[in-house]
């Protein structure tokens, strides 16, 4: 495999060097949510907390609108975004539904079908 090979996978946001740089502040904020005090501070004033991590305007809008796809586009890594999802009390099926535009039940049905090997 060639060094620095990149490939496009539609509907997939590879967390590579470009994204790691672009999303650094956003991911750092989400990483901070491992601590309850940080979650409390965010909940008390989300905008001020975003500013503390120098989030871009696009990142702040994505956080405010709970727009997971926009967060990914702006350099978010799903592993750190999962901590923001936890703060919002969303599980991975909720997140899957939000990203695919399905209802949570539709998303779960798709997982069952994929798990059976139907597709």
């Amino acid at each position: 495999m060639a060094t620095n090979e990149t490939r496009e996978f539609p509907g997939t946001y590879l967390f590579d060097s470009k994204m790691a740089k672009k999303g650094y502040g956003l991911n750092k904020m989400c990483y901070s949510f491992n601590n309850q005090e940080a979650r409390d501070e965010f909940n008390a004033d989300p905008d001020a907390y975003c500013d503390k991590f120098n989030l871009s305007d696009a990142q702040k809008v994505a956080i405010k609108e709970k727009d997971i796809i926009a967060m990914l586009r702006e350099g978010g890594s799903i592993y750190y975004l999962a901590k923001y999802a936890g703060l919002l009390k969303l599980n991975m099926q909720d997140i899957g539904a939000l990203q695919t535009g399905m209802s949570v039940d539709e998303f779960k049905d798709m997982l069952v079908k994929n798990g059976r090997g139907d597709v």
């Binding site: 996978f9 539609p10 509907g11 997939t12 946001y13 997971i68 796809i69 990914l72 799903i78 975004l81 999962a82 991975m92 997140i95 899957g96 990203q99 695919t100 535009g101 998303f107 798709m110 997982l111 994929n114 798990g115």
Partner: peptide
């Protein structure tokens, strides 16, 4: 796959 519109692949 957890992320993106392609989430849910098995």
């Amino acid at each position: 796959q957890l992320d993106g519109e392609r989430a849910g692949i098995i």
